[in-house]
Amino acid sequence: MRPWAERQGQFAAALCNVEHPMPPGCIAPDGLPDATRFAVYRNNVISSLIECLQASYPAIERLLGATCFREVAFRFVAEAPPRSAVMLEYGAGFAEFLAQLEPLAALPYLADVARIERAWLEAYHAAEATALDPAALAAVPEHRSGDLCLTLHPSMRIVQSAFPALTIWQLNIAATAPIAVDLPTVAQDTLIARPDAEVEVRALPPGGAAFLNALGAGETLAESAALAGAAAAEFNLTDQLTALLGSGLITAGRLKRRRTRGH
């Protein structure tokens, strides 16, 4: 009698690897093994995981074509099967997987488009948070406003790309015919967030990503603006702050204590 743990191990190994023989002692009503029957489980596992990736990465599927996408997804599933039963989390790391696939090197923007799709999904399922009333910031004395630390909405994600990744994504999620994009020209940074019911996706102005990344890392408003200014001279703090507050992406603010010299 084989212990159940060992049996499960055999079954599991054969599910993951199509070249692996089916586990022994798995039989049809005639008492004989039948590989077709085991293959139903193997197909269920592999197809369901590929379908999960298809649902999460529709623009990538459209860019690659259905056949190529299945091949790529199959390789990802074999290399990075789910570690959790919460399938809405499955597929993290797909962008990085695409980036290192040699045959896809001719499509260098692909990984960034996948990052946007992943960010969209994460924003969709992210925790809820209430936007900060802009009046609360207005109460901060002007000379202290640079010391503000702002909490960003938990759904907010930023994707920085050396390519027009946002435009490519937009053109490949709509039910329209694909349009040629002038690739080499524009780098695009994208903001993805769900401040309320709908996921919002939009382009960030120059310096915007540096600004939000700094705020997200806990830097003060002054420090974050300085970092954004260093990244892009045309960065405009007032515009950015107004846009953030207006779209409900700031959920809290506090003043950082100024350090006293000598301590």
């Binding site: 009698m1 159940w4 049996r7 499960q8 191990g9 079954f11 599991a12 599910l15 993951c16 489980y41 269920n44 596992v45 369901s48 995981l49 999960c52 099967p81 789910p82 570690r83 959790s84 039963a85 399938m87």
Partner: peptide, 18 residues
Amino acid sequence: WSSHGGIFFNDLLPLPYT
């Protein structure tokens, strides 16, 4: 069963009745 060795298979897999 659907998990083994830290992997989730996203399918309802059979067990022997012992």
